[in-house]
């Protein structure tokens, strides 16, 4: 047997230097990629704020030319003017967006919570559960326009058409619910954001130690009592996070809405102070679609940049702040979770 220690390393230095060089290069390259990513976020946000803010701060950029009575661009943006394609301004679009997302939240929250409860608390983990889980997972990856297509075919034509036949037969052939509208749009968005709520809620439910449930059951509480008194309150922040994320996502979606009820100009708001308060079958305006419409159709391209940026600023600031709230909630959650030593 030769002596085990008799090797010399002729290439040690060159191999080492090459490795060092590659390491330097890769650190630099990946670091550069990270910096680029961060810079692009900052640049995009800054771009919107600067462009939109500058336009809002401007005096009478558009209205002076047509002799409108708005004192500032902000008012012009809110209430509109003849020079904008959508003569109603952004205010009805804001109302439409808010009503739509709230309605969606009201629909998606119980559904998402119930499915998450089923997946964590009730199911035995057999193949139906697996199937449901896979279904939900895939739901998250389906393009949003497909939801619109489905919403149009199923909600509008199948369900809406049936409702018309049963309850609004006197109006036919003019459809009441058998045409795109607020209710169908919010249902479509609810389906679209369902995975978000389910995943967040499930995460929260799984985080609750089973000792808590067992403790409650040991005191004689039924399963439903345990869920409502112990499990859901403990998981509330997670559920809230899920709903906030769902709202943020829904507020920015435009593509599916184009199929299920958004319009460039709606003569009346879908909400009113008189009964029935909410016109579920009505078409509505939407902030995201407003941006799309301005970009696509409004005349006078130079004036458009400012107003599109201003409308975008409105939309983005709402969505980004919702996301930040969700993020902070999650961080808080993780901290309490670490502290409790589970």
């Amino acid at each position: 047997m030769t002596n085990p220690d008799m090797f010399d390393y002729p290439d040690l230095n060159s191999a080492r230097i090459r490795d060092e060089k590659i390491n330097t290069l890769m650190t630099a390259a990946t670091g550069a990629a990270t910096l680029l990513a961060v810079v692009s976020v900052v640049a995009f946000l800054g771009f919107i704020v600067l462009l939109g803010g500058a336009w809002l701060a401007e005096e009478q950029a558009l209205s002076a030319t047509v002799g409108q009575q708005h004192s500032s661009n902000f008012e012009l943006l809110l209430f509109g003017g003849r020079e904008l394609a959508s003569s109603g301004g952004v205010l009805p679009a804001i109302v439409g967006t808010v009503v739509l997302t709230l309605l969606m939240a009201v629909i998606v929250a119980p559904l998402g919570i119930v499915v998450a409860l089923y997946l964590t608390e009730y199911s035995g983990g057999g193949w139906p559960t697996q199937l449901l889980r896979i279904g939900v997972q895939n739901l998250a990856a389906i393009p949003s326009i497909i939801y619109g297509v489905f919403g149009l075919a199923f909600f509008v034509y199948v369900i809406g058409g049936r409702i018309d036949e049963l309850f609004y037969a006197s109006n036919l052939p003019t459809p009441t619910f058998g045409t795109p509208g607020l209710l169908w749009a919010s249902l479509t968005l609810a389906l679209l954001t369902l995975p978000t709520v389910i995943v967040a809620t499930e995460e929260g439910l799984l985080r609750i130690p089973s000792s808590l449930r067992e403790g409650s059951r040991a005191l004689g509480a039924t399963r439903v009592e345990t869920i409502f008194r112990v499990v859901l309150p403990a998981a509330a922040p997670s559920i809230l996070t899920g709903i906030i994320l769902a709202v943020a996502r829904a507020a920015g979606e435009v593509a599916p809405l184009m199929l299920v009820g958004v319009v460039r100009y709606a003569p009346t708001l879908p909400v009113s102070i008189e009964a029935p308060f909410l016109q579920l079958e009505q078409k509505f305006m939407h902030l995201g679609f407003y941006v799309y419409d301005l970009t696509m159709h409004a005349p006078g391209s130079e004036g458009r940049v400012g107003i599109v940026a201003a409308a975008s600023l409105l939309l983005v600031s709402v969505i980004v702040s919702l996301n930040i709230v969700a993020l902070l909630l999650r961080v808080r959650l993780r901290r309490t979770y670490v502290q409790s030593g589970v």
């Binding site: 085990p4 090797f7 390393y9 290439d11 490795d19």
Partner: peptide
Amino acid sequence: GPRIGGLRRRRDLDEVVENALRL
């Protein structure tokens, strides 16, 4: 370890591996 140190020849590597494993 020997490889990143620049040892490339198969025979040398075989020997290093065997010795280290024996040790």
